[in-house]
């Protein structure tokens, strides 16, 4: 019984190698490999040249232009989930907010984590203080570290308050955004924050941001 088992396991051992060799071949010829831009449908409908002895793989050598899995998304389905806001304001909803209204919401729902006036709470300050400037390593806040005002709206809406995420109305999020921008002295207390004005708020930290320039190789960056 020893020998047949030995031969079988040897074959089994070689099979993955053969498959991986075929895999490389398949990748090169079918365009499924890395760094491949979308190609025309007709390209994918071509089958590969036959590989001797492995006709059993022929069912996998045809990559269709579409598998037809999943279902088309309706606009209503997209709108339900599409909550992101870009720096250019794309995605901001209708509505508006002002700082004084935002303070009322903040005091009710946010102070426990972020402190009175957005300073010194257990989950981190949101507002820069004059004392911060003297610190060797000032706490990162919306005023001194966040590069885009739109991110304030986006993040509050998707994740806050911590104990009831996603529970705020768009109007409430606009009010809170106005309050936090005003508390950081980035807008005055009368500024109305809406889809038009929010992307225009200039954030002091934006000029500090640089893209990653590490590229491997011998240099330490």
């Amino acid at each position: 019984m020893q020998k047949p088992i030995g031969i079988t396991s040897k074959l089994l051992f070689q099979l993955p190698i053969l498959i991986s060799v075929l895999g490389v071949f398949y990748e090169k010829n079918s365009g499924t490999g890395s760094d491949t831009p979308p190609l025309s449908a007709s390209f994918f409908q071509q089958s590969l040249p036959p590989v001797s002895g492995f006709n059993s793989f022929s069912d996998t050598t045809l990559l269709p232009s579409s598998f037809g899995f999943g279902r088309p998304a309706t606009q209503a389905e997209i709108d339900k989930l599409d909550i992101d806001v870009r720096p250019d304001g794309k995605g901001l909803p209708t509505g508006s907010g002002i700082s004084s209204r935002g303070k009322l919401i903040f005091d009710a729902k946010c102070v426990a984590c972020h402190g009175a006036g957005g300073i010194g709470g257990p989950n981190g300050s949101l507002v820069t203080t004059t004392a911060d400037a003297k610190e060797k390593r000032p706490e990162k806040t919306i005023g001194n570290y966040w590069p885009y005002a739109t991110t304030v709206f986006d993040y509050i809406r998707r994740a806050m308050p911590f104990n009831a995420p996603g529970s705020l109305t768009n109007e409430e999020v606009y009010h809170l955004t106005a309050y936090l921008l005003n508390a950081n002295k980035l807008i005055d207390e009368k500024t109305v924050i809406d889809a038009k004005s929010l992307p225009k708020v200039v954030m002091p930290a934006q000029k500090l941001f640089i893209p990653d320039d590490r590229k491997g190789g011998p240099e330490v960056k």
């Binding site: 720096p87 919306i142 966040w146 885009y148 739109t150 991110t151 986006d154 500090l208 640089i210 893209p211």
Partner: peptide, 23 residues
């Protein structure tokens, strides 16, 4: 364009020689 979400702006970025390295 990138969306500039909270995690890629205010969180997973690092100070490098007075600048903030992103992405």
């Amino acid at each position: 364009q990138p969306f500039m979400t909270r995690e890629e702006t205010s969180k997973y970025t690092e100070g490098v020689n007075g600048k903030v390295r992103q992405f």
